[in-house]
Design a protein around this nucleic acid. Structure first.
Lengths: 327, 327
DNA sequence: CTGTTAGCGCTTTCAC
DNA sequence: GTGAAAGCGCTAACAG
């Protein structure tokens, strides 16, 4: 049972290969008579067109690449799922790559994906500018940025309202009576950390808060843990740059004999899977991860298929989720 | 800056295309003289061979597919990472697909991946036999099963020692003084649930335990929660089919006013990321997820490149991790 | 060693 | 409407 190709179908249907191609792609009118003969032959032979050959001819591979820092970070799986679900429905296929936020690896990945002739790229990378990517975009590669905006690259993006979410969270804390703040943020290199910091700064200023502290670290459990242990003067509330950090904060606090939220409040950002089951359950800001992935995929496909050049940015809204790690 | 192809290189180096091909692939000896001219030309032109054209010719795409139930399940990301890391080093690229364990989707996915001419497939699916897959294997598709063995398909596999792990866990519980057991297991359809159940049964028999209970449910937090609430007579220890179930058990127990581990012990299986941070931290059995992925990828590549027909099964060892959810 | 050439399977002019 | 034929970029016989 060898692979049947378009020639076999043509022979079976007693038409030319071009006619077969035309009925498959609907690229030109074909008489009902021939059309049905072809369709019959295809069924009979179980013919499937080869993506490879098609790709060679048309330059389209129905494949898109997705570069993320690390699938092992609980923030990403839902996003990936959102992307994959949408893509599959559209007949596209997903190549997943982990970059560990390393600009060098990111560049290699872009190269490699270009070599594989992806039709488009979803990118969630380090903040840094990436020459390879910029060149690729100029060459016409369709790219949409996910969860980041990259300067110097004129491309569409999907992010969530980090600023608004953080601001709303802080206002809530203020209203509830927290008056001194300690912000253990993620890495300064990161788009989200910077924008969350900005929201914090604005908040501080608006309320003329004197008693606060901010530090950039990294988006990890360990960072939260370590930096909490270093805190000299305990604030009313410790704000974690994301949920992972908040977990570390909570555990460190507990070890230090402090009760959350009685002695000090803790908040996170993202609302990853476990935050509602953490002890205490985490007050945080929910980002619509799945929806972000989905939306980004949608935009990318539109870019590819409609060839709409219009650059678009989407900012999905976030939501403050109040649970038991704050009073 | 249009795409440069092998002809351009040939012209630039004043040699034939076959010479260029030969130096690229090292498929036949080429004089130093020409070789260096070609290499020069390649550099000068920034030439990159096209995977597509190559794939059309050779049938190889340097792409492998990976079908998993759901990347959103914390069990899988590490595995995927193990796969991707290895694959990338070997110059392969990973197409990731979520099947939700739905046999129908699994079949479609297999078809789709075959259409894309993947060189090999990694499969972690429902337990059921899958006709499409069996056919694909017969046609020569290289497949390795991950975390499952599929009956009726003669293919390599990588699993971890579920039986041994569960057995060791139970022996530990016995030794520590737990005498009555309640096992809330995953879905019966699932290879892991069945084999863990078998270990349980053997344990029960060997120790002539009278006071025990077992139920198949599903590998989810909710299952653990719901089934715990239904427990009539509280045992000494509740064994979760995996960590997610155990989390649900712990939370339900807490709501019921029971203390873990004082009143009742709880155990899980897998040792996913959060289990060491759960409150109480979870006694469980660690599966080497990353290593499993890596190993499976390694075997698959060997199958593809060495064309070694020899079927191989790997059983990676598991490890009991004792923490605070048991005494 | 090196070059010429025939495809891989498909789409797309270009004639009829 | 339909078919013949020219490639897409590459590899691998086949000659020399």
């Amino acid at each position: 049972m060898k692979k049947v190709n378009i020639k076999d179908v043509a022979r079976e249907a007693k038409v030319s290969v071009s006619t077969v191609s035309r009925v498959i792609n609907g690229s030109a009118p074909v008489s009902e008579e021939l059309k049905s003969r072809v369709i019959d032959a295809i069924k009979r032979l179980g013919y499937k067109p080869s993506y490879i050959a098609r790709g060679l001819r048309s330059g389209k591979t129905k494949t898109i690449g997705f570069i993320i820092p690390d699938i092992t970070n609980p923030f990403f799986p839902e996003m990936v799922r959102g992307v994959e679900d949408f893509l599959r429905k559209k007949g596209y296929t997903l190549i997943l790559c982990n970059s560990d936020q390393d600009p060098k690896i990111e560049s290699e990945l872009v190269d490699m994906l270009m070599d594989k002739h992806i039709d488009g790229l979803l990118f969630t990378g380090a903040g840094e500018r990436n020459k390879k990517l910029e060149v690729a975009v100029e060459k016409g590669l369709k790219v949409v940025f996910l969860d980041r905006i990259m300067e110097g690259v004129n491309a569409s993006y999907v992010i969530s309202d980090n600023y608004g979410g953080m601001k709303a969270l802080l206002e809530h804390l203020w209203k509830v009576g927290y008056k001194s703040y300690y912000f253990i943020n993620g890495s300064e290199e990161t788009f989200s950390a910077r924008i969350r910091y900005k929201a914090f700064l604005d908040f501080i200023e608006e309320h003329k808060i004197k008693n606060y502290h901010h530090v950039f670290s990294s988006f990890s459990y360990e960072a939260g843990y370590v930096y909490t242990k270093k805190v000299k003067q305990m604030p009313d509330v410790i704000i974690g740059g994301n949920d992972l950090i908040a977990y570390g904060v909570i555990d460190a606090l507990e070890e230090m004999g402090l009760d959350v939220p009685k002695d000090v409040g803790v908040t996170g950002f993202d609302d990853i899977l476990f935050s509602k089951h953490y002890k205490p359950s985490l007050t945080t800001v929910r980002q619509p991860m799945y929806e972000m992935g989905r939306k980004a995929a949608q935009i990318l496909i539109a870019l590819i298929e409609k060839d709409s050049v219009r650059k678009r940015g989407y900012v999905l809204s976030t939501e403050v989720v109040i649970r038991n790690s704050t009073r």
